[in-house]
Design a protein around this nucleic acid. Structure first.
Lengths: 228, 228
DNA sequence: GATTCAAATATGTCTATACATAAACAAAAT
DNA sequence: ATTTTGTTTATGTATAGACATATTTGAATC
């Protein structure tokens, strides 16, 4: 008899996907399932909670558990360091600092980060390469109030991205993918200014203050892959 | 005293993010934390398992639990039905079938779905609209062997996407976002053929057979948003 | 008829205990 | 020196029982 919560999880998922338990249907309650599988209610609970978190089930106290009507899939999008993304494909990672200077953060970035006043910031443009070929062009503003050490960080060996991941406390952030013409990133990525590129705009916040705003232009043919 | 597993989860996350528990560090074992928080070990376990699943901790039997060195963030990317995506912004959703015909599935789609031979399929082009303005253009091939009823499904009220979600059993699939020129989708989306667009290529598989291949061209200014 | 209140019920969670399992470590055998 | 074997330890998971909490349902009251 299958008693592991994983097995119950898998069997329940099979019933959902095969429509033994059709969308919208109320499934047997935990006690009944525990009896059926010959295990404790807590074990069923563990399995069903996982399915609920993954969006397959909707559970409400007293009302019971039902199969989600139109399951809104959630893709697990892994957001690796660019270095890992490149190295995982067996390519050699490198990066080159194009420009680096301290200045007042311009208005668009300030607005995106919700910063008041005219905070000091460092502006860094970096080219990331895979096997010495351009992979992505990064335009980054770092709020020096939130990460003062960044001003003097040695960015020749370790990339700005990785330095911040390792040295700045992280609380939350947003990602925003869109499509846009290469424009000024074109020359760095060996493509025309009108070439369509994937753009990633990223805002990162520490526990107390916004840390950095990044606009990343991926080289042509980049694609974002998810399994669901 | 905080005894809920959520509270322990949050406190542990705070310690990780504030670097009380720095990257790579071994954290106290479950028994010690249970003592500290005044709860049972199972409660600590519940909290830490969540953090491990979210990528903050790495746990190995006997070796203990340590903070992930360079936490690879996983964004939860919600993949809503287009209808929900539009309606959640308070806009009116509608769709229009542009073309619909049964034919042999062409080679690229066949390859993408891993289909042998020359399976019968239905080809549907659909325009999705938000407040009567083009939102996305869909080019879809449906494997009729996997979803025979689709051939006669009434697609005037319910969109192809939604019909399949509700009527075809689902097992797994892949998503692939990229940037490309609008090309032939341009006229439908009121933009030039060279306008950069976000493209979503989606493959969906049932329990037994591939179901559908979709190429979705989003109108300009579409962006994919994630919080982490 | 409308409102309030009290059961009944399904899930949410904690506890204490037990055993399983993987891995690190050390001791013993080859 | 190398391999094998056993011990220890931390996590993984199951269990029964208990209580908490949300919600439905229906009865009692206004």
């Amino acid at each position: 008899m299958a008693t592991g919560w994983q097995e119950i999880h898998d069997e329940a998922l099979r019933r959902i996907q095969s429509r033994d338990w059709p969308p919208g249907a109320l499934i047997p309650n935990e006690a009944a399932l525990a009896r059926e599988f010959g295990c404790a209610r807590a074990t069923v609970n563990r399995a069903l909670q996982g399915l609920a978190k993954a969006g397959w089930l909707e559970r409400r106290r007293r009302a019971g558990t039902r199969v989600t009507l139109s399951p809104q899939r959630r893709g697990q999008l892994a957001i690796p360091l660019i270095r890992h993304e490149i190295e995982s494909k067996g390519q050699i990672f490198s990066h080159a600092i194009i420009t680096r200077q301290t200045a007042e953060m311009p208005s668009p970035q300030r607005a995106a980060l919700g910063l008041q006043g005219a905070p000091y910031a460092q502006h860094v443009q970096t080219l990331y390469l895979a096997d010495a070929r351009p992979f992505a062009f990064e335009d980054r503003w770092v709020n020096l109030a939130a990460a003062p050490d960044f001003a003097t960080a040695p960015l020749d060996r370790i990339s700005p991205n990785e330095w911040l991941v390792q040295n700045a406390p992280f609380a939350h952030g947003t990602l925003d993918y869109s499509a846009a013409p290469a424009n000024t990133a074109g020359p760095h990525l060996n493509c025309q200014p009108d070439t369509p590129l994937m753009i990633l705009e990223r805002r990162t916040f520490g526990p107390d203050a916004p840390v950095t705003h990044v606009r990343l232009s991926y080289a042509p043919n980049f694609h974002l892959h998810l399994k669901i």
